[in-house]
Amino acid sequence: MKNLFFSAAALLLFFSCQNDQTELTTDATTAITQRKCATQDVLEAQLKEDPTLAIRMNQIEAFTQNALLTKRLVNGKVVIPVIVNVLYRTAAENISDAQIQSQIDVLNKDFTATNSDFSNTPAEFAGVAANVGITFELVKINRKSTTKSSWGTRDAMKSTKKGGLNPTSPTTNLNLWVCTIGGGILGYAQFPGGSSATDGVAIDSKYFGLSGTANYPYNLGRTASHEVGHWMNLRHIWGDASCGSDLVSDTPVAKTANYGVPVYPYVSTCLPAHNEMTMNYMDYTDDRGMFMFTNGQKSRMNALFVSGGARSGFGI
């Protein structure tokens, strides 16, 4: 079992001294052969630009750990209002209302364990597989025609001044930006603690919702499930380090990101020997290969919404 209790100094180190990441490109034509989430890279850039972000994130982490210890979690149902901001240059990028609704439907299934593939959870992990109990409600779709062929990962899509769309009431709405990101990036999220001016999730329009067989293997809406997990304070399953910690006790330690659809059991090289949870939404597997959160991840997410939590403005 992972040791999840950190001193304030250790937490500050965790959020301010991650390994350097390679610079992201914004070539919209890059072929995507493996899942690429830019959330950690974006966090690294934000930490360098704003030294106070590490302090805020460590305060959120301390609050989360205290909530877990005292079992001060959500008592009731959390419904997340969703604003979808579509930025398009081509007709294909101007995705339909039906495709947008299909993504909301996927989120609702994945976060309530009503997805049909949840039953594929191996018996080994069945005891910790979770119904997170959070649902999503589409409240508005904003659309804007642009001349940009790709947006990159520096939050330009989130700014009206930069040609994008400002977030709508981000303390009470989950804003999703749908556009061509480029650089082989499927999507990225902002962790709790970041600026409200950029809070939310960006997802490439080709991988948003049930996007069709042309975008296989990322056509089942799981990019959003992964990125919204980050928005709700979940780390990558491998902790963005070799055999690292994702701050969750019931997810087995993972050596690194897993790709494709690994065949279970997938034995880790992290010691002691154990099977990795490659089917967790916070890994890098193909859409059809990820289909579960854990109880520990559920508790971590729910801690955000209690009174005093980083996303308590969403209420119950």
Rank of each mutant, 00 (worst) to 15 (best):
N142Q: 02
V201D: 13
D199H: 12
N142T: 00
L186I: 12
T168I: 14
G200M: 10
S159H: 10
T168N: 05
S145C: 01
T135G: 09
N166V: 05
V178Y: 05
I141K: 01
V178L: 06
L186G: 12
K148G: 05
I134G: 09
G183D: 09
D199K: 15
I181G: 04
V139G: 00
C179F: 08
S149K: 14
D155C: 09
K161G: 13
G164H: 00
F136S: 11
K144T: 01
F191W: 15
I134N: 07
Q190R: 14
T171Y: 01
G183E: 12
N166P: 05
T160I: 10
I141T: 05
L174K: 04
D199S: 13
A189K: 07
I141G: 03
S150I: 09
R143C: 02
R143W: 01
W177C: 00
P167E: 03
S150R: 08
P170S: 03
N173T: 04
G182P: 06
A202F: 12
F136W: 13
E137M: 15
Y188A: 13
I134D: 08
T172Y: 03
A189E: 10
G187Q: 11
D155V: 08
P192C: 13
L138H: 03
E137K: 15
L165F: 01
A202D: 13
S196G: 06
W151Q: 04
F136E: 09
V178F: 06
V201K: 14
R143T: 00
S145H: 04
